[in-house]
Design a protein around this nucleic acid. Sequence first.
RNA 1: GGUCCCUUCGUCUAACGGUUAGGACACUUGGUUUUCAUCCAAGAAAUAGGAGUUCGAUUCUCCUAGGGACUACCA
Length: 510
Amino acid sequence: MSKQVRVRFAPSPTGPLHIGGVRTALFNYLFAKKNNGVFFLRIEDTDQNRFVPGAEEYIMESLEWLGIAPDETIGKNEKFGPYKQSERKHLYLKYADDLINSGNAYYAFDTAEALDLHRKQHEEQGKTFIYNWHNREKLDTSLVISAEETAKRIAAGEEYVIRFKTPVDETLQLQDIIRGEVKFETNLLDDKVLFKSDGMPTYHLANIVDDHLMETSHVIRGEEWLPSMPLHVLLYRAFGWEAPQFAHLPLILKPVGNGKLSKRDGDKLGFPVFPLEWKTEDGISSGYREKGFFPETVINFLALLGWNDGTEQEIFTLEELVDKFDLNRVHKAGAKFDPEKNKWFNHQYLMKQSDSDLAEDFAPIVAEKGFSSFDCAQGDTLEMTKLEKIVSLIKERANFVSEFWDLSDFFFVAPTSYDEKARKNWKEETPALMQELISVLSEIADFTSVNIETIVKDWMTKNEIGMGKVMQPFRLSLVGALKGPHLFDIVELIGKEETIKRIETAIATL
RNA sequence: GGUCCCUUCGUCUAACGGUUAGGACACUUGGUUUUCAUCCAAGAAAUAGGAGUUCGAUUCUCCUAGGGACUACCA
């Protein structure tokens, strides 16, 4: 039996979870579930300066809303806890020391200022400063001084970092599940800092140590990490550990122009880039949840950004995605985010919702417009039945529940104005015809859509009145414009009295 | 600048050497609805360029071009 699949999503809590991060989490989740494995969440907060309050909770809440919550994390099945790196702080120095003792790392005393100066000088000469084999013995490191001297300086409280001693003259041929073989020359790599002078590990050290300790089988992360893959593989080797398998996911790009989708793009282009709304003193960043997207929409759309199952199916439930997901079918190239198609997906899921669920979502909006009888709290069942009927008539023309009011306001209030372009359908003979229509309508006992339609149409044919002459002004009177669902359905719902009243108002106004 | 990754319709993608290069979103045009939307049908729309390998390249190799990521004591 092969090793258990254990994958992780390891964000740093520096702000709200970006949509690209959501997709990384999703693919990890799908891969884990597909392989009967474990999906865990680890918070990588080794940089204390960038910590943002609330971000950690935000990440958890987002994953829960989307239905892809981790199996193990802070406060949940803490088999390999803690799941927060700042709480694992005591662990890392030992591993850095191991690397020093095995000759795979060294102390470096260069100050940040000294290094900045080097970089600047190199840049002025059109060169790039790389801290590695070619200059590490000219810099201020433990490689060029005695062990006693090193110990003395550290004991004296001098600040230091621990750097990885990248091996020389090797060509690394690494395997990536998505990209196949990727080659790197170790001579071109730099000696990354593993342990910072503030006593915390860097991402690289903490990530490798924790992935090993937490028995991670596959590292599925964004493409931005591809350049650090050689370092990470080298670290596993230096520790004598078996490395997990790697898969680097393509990036999500801006809908227009070039580049990675960023936090700013969303609100600029009118779509959210965060699952949940995020408030700061600088303002509000909109979220999918608050914008009326269904979590299923977000999951489905994101899954198809860079992956497909090879068939022409586009609508997938989470369960189907789990069943069909295959890392080998993930695309290599980045994908532009298409807000239009994203909306289309939401329409698909809107249509799948039951009328009663949609009515329930719509009720508070109606109540807010001043129709408190639709307020869920007051729960008038007769009104809710009516609301369900309204919803069933308009939902096919909406992408979001938030659009329902504009599509259905005439069910609640009589038109206060009439569409300019539609007014030309109101001709000289119209008032007389409408007057006749009123008397026809008032005679109808069984006031239901089909019955009203039959009677009105009979009246028109008997008197040889053209359909357009009646139907257009009739609709204009009730709706205020030439739009909306089947006219007789509207008539039935607003009732005989209101219908007649609206026609009378139209006659008086137009 | 250096390193690495990528490249099929406007966009997301299918076609794992042999297809009239398929689907979806968006777009256009018809039909249905005497309205609008939905829906249905149809249409336009792509293998970045150049060499090679091969009987045959979207598919394999190389070059060029373009795009992207990384290049911090950030992740």
